[in-house]
Write a protein that binds this DNA or RNA. Structure first.
Length: 443
RNA sequence: GGAGAGAUGGCCGAGUGGUCGAAGGCGCUCCCCUGCUAAGGGAGUAUAGGCUCAAAAAGCUUAUCGAGGGUUCGAAUCCCUCUCUCUCCGCCA
């Protein structure tokens, strides 16, 4: 959420900056609402002040045993007028809030202008894609040939965009998550956290998925009775929870409505969770294989930091994600997303793209963002600053890494001519010393 | 699922309709005294908004005692709904 003060004082400029992100800010509507808000709020508060003063007088007079009927009469008709003003004010403020809740973050100055991923800027590359002297397979045929990856069964169980892994691939998948978690905890100083996979709407509003992107989420409700007995879902009585689309949601919301002591900063949190995405609107995209699934595992990194440290933290965060790829010897490049390609909450985002030989291209495997105070303002997540005053935190998140896509990268980059897959040395200790997946080893 | 208790400021804790944003204590900050690890005295110490103001400072003002609604001229205090915590019983991985 943007600071409404900023919009009041510098609206045209802010609106122009939002345009570069592909967002059209309703300037006229906002101005009209603000004008109304101002006059109605002033009026409401004047009425409230009058009521308070009069009531106080009644109290004093009564205690002295004086007759209060005259004052009572004076204030009698105040009630209706006040109630009406309060209601008007509440509805205008709700409208303003609604505008703010669907307005994306402002891009940082260092973010390149652009419309789509074609305008993203490559900032570095690591590793050299391997050259193969045999006809390579993609991860689907590698996995299916090994008998360890089974999309047909997954479709029977749940439908499209799910997968069943078995034997060595299932274990490799588990090994990857363990390896990432251990690396971040032991080498990068993160605190491992276990979190709920079902969260309430306030969490999703806090990190920015709601109210705008509900169609991307899965929702569940407890039992069937909750829905059938005409329960009206309201903010106060939510009957449904959402499956997390990323551990960013529960991890970041840990500090929602909290004031963190300065000396506890920065918080560096890591969690391994499944993630659930409806992938509405991506029909026909990446339909083959593990790249785009309704359910996938991810190791997520979150930093909760002092505002002055957040860009420094972003560089660290990216380097932590990169370190995983380096340890696995997977070639990658780092991109700065342009204004038009960034997510809703981000002020600046680096994507890490891993080399996928079968696609002959780099594909996103991590996205690291500094959200500055955007999420913190929605969440009222603050710290006590050097002067002892509460101030909004900055929040960052990044994948470290997407486990399923890392698995894809390993299968494809480490494939051998005979259809086996070499296990990267960094993972062998997590695989009981196993150094390759071959048909006989996976059973 | 059944029965009961509770939720107040950074913390503890008082407050059951009236000058309460809230006693007292602890903690913290500043000052004074003392003078040398202690003790004493004084002052201050919530958050979010709005308006005035070029801005800062300041002033005025509103809201907030788990959340939402209600009663009332007036609610921390009364009523309703909800959430969460704790205790006991039942069930359960």
């Amino acid at each position: 959420m943007l600071d409404i003060q900023l919009l009041r004082t510098d609206l045209d400029h802010i609106a122009a900056r939002l345009t570069s992100r592909g967002h059209t800010f309703p300037i006229a509507q906002f101005n009209a609402l603000e004008a109304q808000r101002k006059s109605i709020q002033t009026h409401t508060q004047a009425l409230q002040a009058k009521r308070n003063a009069t009531s106080k007088q009644i109290g004093i007079a009564k205690q002295k045993g004086e007759d209060v009927s005259a004052i009572m009469a004076e204030v009698a008709q105040l009630g209706d007028e006040l109630k009406q003003a309060e209601n008007q004010l509440a509805s205008i403020q709700a409208e303003l809030q609604q505008i703010l809740l669907v307005t994306p973050n402002l891009a940082h100055d260092s973010v390149p202008e652009g419309k789509s991923d074609a305008d993203n800027r490559e900032i570095r590359r690591w590793g050299t894609p391997r050259t193969f002297d045999f006809a390579i397979q993609d991860h689907v045929s590698i996995g299916e040939s090994l008998g360890l990856l089974d999309f047909a069964t997954a479709a029977k169980l749940s439908g499209a965009r799910f997968n069943v892994m078995k034997g060595g691939i299932a274990r490799l998948h588990r090994a990857l998550a363990q390896f990432m978690l251990d690396t971040h905890v032991q080498e990068h100083g993160y605190t491992e956290v276990y979190v709920p996979y079902l969260v309430n709407a306030e969490c999703l509003r806090g990190t920015g998925q709601l109210p705008k992107f509900e169609e991307d989420l899965f929702a569940v409700h407890a039992g069937s009775s909750s829905l059938s007995d005409s329960t009206v879902p309201t903010e106060q009585h939510p009957f449904k929870l959402h499956l997390i689309p990323t551990a960013e949601v529960p991890l970041t919301n840990i500090v929602r409505e909290e004031i963190i002591p300065l000396e506890q900063l920065p918080l560096k949190l890591v969690a391994h969770t499944p993630c659930f995405r409806s992938e509405a609107g991506s029909y026909g995209k990446d339909t083959r294989g593990l790249i785009r699934q309704h359910q996938f595992d991810k190791v997520e990194l979150v930093h909760i930091v002092h505002p002055q440290k957040s860009y420094e933290a972003l560089e660290q965060l990216v380097s932590h994600a990169e370190n995983i790829l380096q340890k696995l010897a997977l070639p990658y490049r780092v991109m700065t997303l342009c204004t038009g390609d960034m997510g809703f909450s981000a002020a600046k985002t680096y994507d890490i793209e891993v080399w996928l030989p079968a696609q002959n291209t780099y594909r996103e495997i991590s996205s690291c963002s500094n959200c500055e105070a955007f999420q913190a303002r929605r969440m009222q997540a603050r710290f006590r600053n050097e002067k002892g005053k509460p101030e909004l935190l900055h929040t960052l998140n990044g994948s470290g890494l997407a486990v399923g896509r890392t698995l894809v990268a390993i299968l494809e980059n480490y494939q051998n001519a005979d259809g086996s897959v070499t296990i990267p040395s960094a993972l062998q200790s997590y695989m009981g010393g196993l150094d390759q997946l071959a048909i006989e080893s996976g059973q």
